[in-house]
Design a protein around this nucleic acid. Structure first.
Lengths: 205, 205
DNA sequence: CGTGATCCTGACCGTTTGGTCAAACTCTTT
DNA sequence: AAAGAGTTTGACCAAACGGTCAGGATCACG
């Protein structure tokens, strides 16, 4: 009933199973396309039992989204003023690419949510996300005015990194339909391309 | 009943209204999230009347997708061996960005479809789309071996152009949540950034 | 003007879906 | 072992949904 903070072993186990199952189903079908029966079956529970742990479908979705946004932004938080600016940004892109490879469900969950107009996380976008992005954009802008990287719009640089990396998770079907790769082989090529792209574009003239 | 090729003025008008309404609804809610009532209301028709023109929900979706894929790929088809290679590719990216600005519904319709695993256009992806992409990738590869652009993986270059441009349509809500732009102002900045990005990355060393 | 083709509608139907509920089962604690 | 908290289930419900159908309205055309 509470579902926020598990209090018993059974709750802990079942809530984890539900969230994992829901991540599967929501990321494949979107919120509207997912059904409670699907999630319950994937979690190995009956539908009423699932609704014993979460008040309703929306609550599961919200729990997933808010729990995930944090970890999703970790690589951006790690962008630091310490190292070489170009290496920092290239490294960020490559870390995001690793996430697209290793956590495609999470990427697709967010993509679905944003596509539908982000009804459940718009406040997070306009709040914490925007704050973090503005902060890192200022860092990048500083590098640019110091001549340590090329003069580029920091916000659009960040957008382009998000777009190019998440593309490999969100549009996986298309990428595979065109490249017909075996397994994850194409992620290595993608990494080399992105390294070239951002290193070349950012290295000061 | 036929719906493929309109034969009367009324058919022409109503089918156009249905497809336009369906583009609205499908692009906002995805296939599963869209309802026939929504589409019918948006088209100014009753549901049975809508189903007089299209056999079922799927038929509307398919009609939209197959009718759109062609025009969607026009900019890529226009990529030609004639002009300066860097200008050609930069121009392609900017044309795609214009499309993201002017035809966001179409972009989101495809994004939704691909996200759900492209159940209705997978054959088109693995067929005509793949053929076209391979053809243009070969053209770009030729430029690279001739030293007219930097050595980059052509397929991943194309993917990155798709990703960076369609991002502004598909993730519009997020972009606006962070930039809080007035109208389309940010598309100009995005164009300048992308021009820099691809020109720098592709100009031979 | 009449007639056949086309167009449109209200009423209806079966299924799916999110969600409820009372009752039963199980686990922990004393 | 008793009791109470915590867990699970089958049966059920109302709403939403995709789709059907018989009949009526309207249009194009000889």
């Amino acid at each position: 009933m509470v579902a926020a903070v598990p209090r018993t072993r059974i709750q802990e186990k079942n809530i984890a199973a539900i969230l994992d199952a829901a991540l599967d189903v929501f990321s494949q079908a979107g919120f509207r396309g997912a059904t409670l029966d699907q999630i319950a079956r994937a979690a190995g529970l009956s539908k009423p039992n699932l609704l014993y742990y979460f008040a309703n479908k929306k609550a599961i979705h919200v729990a997933l989204l808010s729990g995930l946004l944090d970890s999703w932004l970790d690589p951006l938080r790690a962008l630091d003023g310490a190292g070489d600016p170009v290496d920092e940004i290239v490294g960020y892109a490559l870390r995001k690419l690793d996430m697209a490879r290793d956590l495609p469900r999470e990427s697709r969950l967010f993509a679905n949510e944003i596509l539908q107009g982000a009804p459940r996380i718009l406040d997070m976008i306009e709040g914490p996300l925007r704050t973090l992005v503005d902060e890192k954009a200022a860092l990048i802008a500083g590098w640019a005015s110091a001549g340590r990287i090329a003069r580029v719009d920091p916000h659009h640089l960040i957008f382009s990194i998000w777009a190019t990396t998440q593309h490999y998770a969100d549009f996986d079907v298309q990428v595979r339909g065109i490249l017909a790769p075996t397994g994850d082989a194409h992620f290595k090529e993608a990494g080399q391309f992105l390294e070239h792209l951002y290193r070349r574009a950012l290295t000061p003239a």
